[in-house]
């Protein structure tokens, strides 16, 4: 009690290893799901930079991806949305200049994928 601790003897607070939240899937929050029409995409990266959940994966591609007008888009290209994290806000669909994203109700998407 009486002896004062010096600063380096103080107890360390909580220290967490980095980027562990990727283990916490937020996709279950979704009410709407963005459906992406790759054939209309111009790979402009607007949706990627806006997405609050970093749920639109991209890759650097030399050979590129075929998008709107059958053109091959090179450099950074987007891929299918990562539904583990997408919360379904709809920002991507509102902002896409090529209108290649449509929001549908999550249950419709799930039912469609569960047809026996």
């Amino acid at each position: 009690m009486s002896s004062k601790k010096s600063w380096h003897e103080l107890e360390v607070g909580v220290v967490l290893p980095p980027a562990t939240s990727v283990g916490y899937k937020t996709g279950g929050w979704r009410v709407f799901r963005p459906v992406w029409d790759a054939s209309q995409c111009i790979h402009c990266m607007i949706c990627v930079n806006y997405c609050p959940d970093m749920a639109i994966p991209i890759e650097k591609s030399e050979q590129g991806a075929v998008g709107k007008g059958g053109r091959v888009y090179k450099g950074a290209v987007r891929k299918e949305t990562n539904f583990d994290y997408c919360k379904g806000c709809g920002i991507c669909a509102t902002e896409c200049p090529s209108k290649c994203l449509t929001m549908i109700r999550e249950e419709e998407a799930e039912q469609a994928s569960c047809k026996l």
Binding site: V22, Y24, I58
Partner: peptide, 22 residues
Amino acid sequence: IALKTDGVDARLVSGHRMCAGC
């Protein structure tokens, strides 16, 4: 910019709990 902010190597990653559309 997108290449620097995307994926698990970025400085802020997915799985946070900010509101949808924040």
